[in-house]
Amino acid sequence: MSRKLHIHAPAIHYFDMVRRCHSIREAARRLNVASSAVNRQILKLEDEIGAPLFDRLPGGLRLTGAGEIFARHVTVVLQDMERVRSELDALQGLRTGHVEIATIEAVTSDLLPCVLKAMRERYPDITVGVTLLGSQAIPEAVSSGAVDLGLAFALPRSADLQQVSVGHFRLGAIVSPQHPLARHQAIAFADCVEHGLIMAKSELSIHHLLAPLQRRLREPRRAVLESSSLELSRQLARRGLGVAFQTRLGIEADIAQGELRFLPLKDNGGIHSDLGLYVRTGRYLPVAVDALARQIAEEVRLREREEARLNEA
């Protein structure tokens, strides 16, 4: 079985848990120790550093400037400890560990389930935690160490993130088969305006990809609905309530069953959204994290090749 390493001072672990929970009491509960023990270690750290690490606010604890700096150090230390544990396990032929990934809603209906099924078959002792976030929130989750991997569309370049794989997917309009636009093979964004726009909110990458097209409209139109849920947008499009926008990812089954039509946008010769997999820059990946990253990259490549085949057909 996987070994647990306790080679760093308890204060490191206590600080990290308080940072995550924003509460000494909750951190103590999760660590199964007394609150006084956690508080004592935090005070000891603050005394050694010579500055408070947390602001004590009515709504909980919040990192100070010094706390932010120390948190970055702690993240590196704890993730490196996980790497050491993983490498020791690998020497014994073990494939164990836990991986946390933050991802977007679009990949949860088909792509990610396929990945996790393959992982379960290949590495039954690796466990996975999945958090759903908007694309704009994923960089912070990765760089802060809250998750090991981030899977998202169209993230801006950042010195804190390293892209380990990427797939290119066409953005399109989705409508019901009975919709007046359904007969088209591809379509311009401006042609969708008269039929009611179902738009993504700013926390989703689609919003930022379509914003330049909205600004070019001669007569700007307000969306009939704005949502941070692609699932809600998809369901409204299926019911003929407007035109939604996304890639084929997440709606493959609807397209195959004839419940939705996907119309690639032809503006600017086609608009593509890059689905990237990210880790914190400079991080050496433990065996479990590397295994999941490779499985995701493999599945994304398969989907990318399938889309290329469909575009050529």
Rank of each mutant, 00 (worst) to 15 (best):
H6P: 03
I7A: 10
H8C: 14
P10D: 07
F15V: 09
R19C: 06
C21E: 13
I24N: 00
R25N: 06
L31D: 15
A34S: 06
S35P: 09
K44M: 10
E46K: 01
D47Y: 10
D55E: 12
G60S: 05
L63H: 00
G65N: 04
A71W: 08
V77A: 07
D80G: 10
M81E: 15
V84Q: 12
S86Q: 03
E87D: 14
Q92Y: 09
L94Q: 14
T96I: 13
I101V: 02
A102D: 03
A102M: 01
I104P: 04
S109T: 03
C114N: 08
L116T: 11
K117R: 04
E121D: 09
T127R: 13
T127G: 12
G129V: 00
V130G: 11
G134P: 10
A146C: 00
R157A: 12
S158M: 04
Q163I: 00
S165D: 15
F169K: 10
V175A: 03
P180Q: 01
Q185P: 05
A188S: 11
A190I: 13
D191P: 11
D191T: 10
V193L: 01
V193K: 04
E194R: 13
H195Y: 08
M199L: 14
A200S: 15
K201T: 07
L209E: 14
L210G: 10
P212G: 13
P212D: 11
L225T: 11
S229R: 07
E231Y: 04
G240Y: 06
L249S: 06
L249D: 09
A256C: 03
A256N: 05
R261Y: 01
L263G: 06
L265V: 08
L265D: 06
D267V: 15
G269C: 09
H272M: 05
D274I: 01
L277R: 05
V287F: 14
V289G: 12
V289L: 12
V289S: 12
A291V: 15
A291M: 11
R294N: 11
R294I: 05
I296L: 14
V300S: 09
R303T: 04
N311T: 01
N311G: 02
